[in-house]
């Protein structure tokens, strides 16, 4: 869907490039996570892809064509979910959506979507009366309004309770199943783990790691297994290499003769990988 080649970007007043020659691809129908701490260039990359920033070097192809060659019609195919609320607060949710809907040539079943995210009953309320979570859900509806082919989502579940976060994640999965492509920016690694097919970690304007969450966990985890078992009423711990585990006499002995309390492979979490590959504490 997108091919990004040697992308470089510098803000007009900056002395240093914010994006330092990144190359990656977003495949059609995948959920791609762009991760990293604050100020590494994630938002800038996203702004370039949604044409908010234009003076970049390098090449971006969207469906095989230079992104720069697309006019406003590009946004018929693209939905953008901003992190902050983007609604006219003195208009109702329905008035906000009706206004934006009229700007697109095809639109989604808004009432249906409002029902799914639990805002249908509140559609006639002014947005200024909405809670933060309601505004976040309305943001999602706004992003989906034009039946997009590509969704850019920035922290789509931030500020939502677990029930509503689950609904939004289900809708993102459904969007993908119907052939949609998603670029997701979030600091909630559980969301990344659950949703993303591939992720790219950014640090200092560069992509430092790009792969599937599973491969990254294997790559950065140790091929070991931790277990706890009970021997003579005492809790004991043991660690074994996963290589040729079936031939490990000690492991087989424990399995056969003792009560196993817990057993875990020592793969890393995405949180650990985040810290490891970006070299900083996770703060975004």
């Amino acid at each position: 869907m997108y091919q990004i080649n040697k992308l470089v970007f510098r803000y007009p007043r900056n002395k240093e490039d914010t994006i330092k020659g990144i190359s990656f691809e977003i495949k059609k129908g995948e959920i791609f996570g762009l991760l990293g701490p604050s100020g590494v260039g994630k938002s800038t990359t996203q702004k370039i892809l949604i044409k908010l920033l234009k003076d970049y070097k390098g090449q971006i192809l969207y469906k095989g064509r230079d992104l720069k060659s697309y006019g406003p019609s590009y946004f018929e195919e693209v939905g953008v979910g901003f992190e902050m609320p983007v609604h006219f607060s003195k208009l109702t949710a329905e008035e906000n959506l009706n206004f934006f809907m009229k700007l697109y040539s095809s639109t989604v079943d808004v009432d249906g979507l409002l029902k799914r995210v639990g805002l249908y009953e509140d559609r006639k309320k002014r947005v200024s009366q909405f809670s933060k979570g309601m505004k976040v859900r309305l943001n999602f509806v706004r992003a989906m309004l034009n039946k997009p082919k590509v969704l850019f989502l920035d922290e789509p579940t931030n500020g939502l309770d677990p029930k509503n976060a689950r609904i939004i994640k289900e809708l993102i999965k459904e969007f993908k199943e119907e052939g949609g492509t998603v670029l997701l920016t979030t600091h909630l690694m559980n969301d990344v783990d659950e949703l993303c097919d591939r992720v790219a970690f950014m640090a200092d304007g560069r992509i430092v790691e790009i792969s599937t969450p599973k491969d990254l966990k294997l790559k950065y985890g140790s091929r070991e297994l931790d277990m706890e078992y009970r021997e003579d009423e005492r809790l004991k711990r043991a660690t074994f290499s996963l290589d040729k585990l079936g031939d490990n006499e000690e492991f087989l002995n424990i399995i056969k003769n003792y009560e196993i309390i817990t057993i875990h492979s020592k793969e890393n979490t995405l949180d650990d990988i985040f810290i490891k590959v970006t070299g900083v504490t996770k703060d975004e």
Binding site: I50, S73, V80, H87, S105
Partner: peptide, 14 residues
């Protein structure tokens, strides 16, 4: 203040 100007920038309008 309401950031609606941003959402206008990603709408199919010139």
């Amino acid at each position: 203040d309401e950031s609606t100007i941003r959402t206008m920038l990603v709408a199919p309008i010139s």
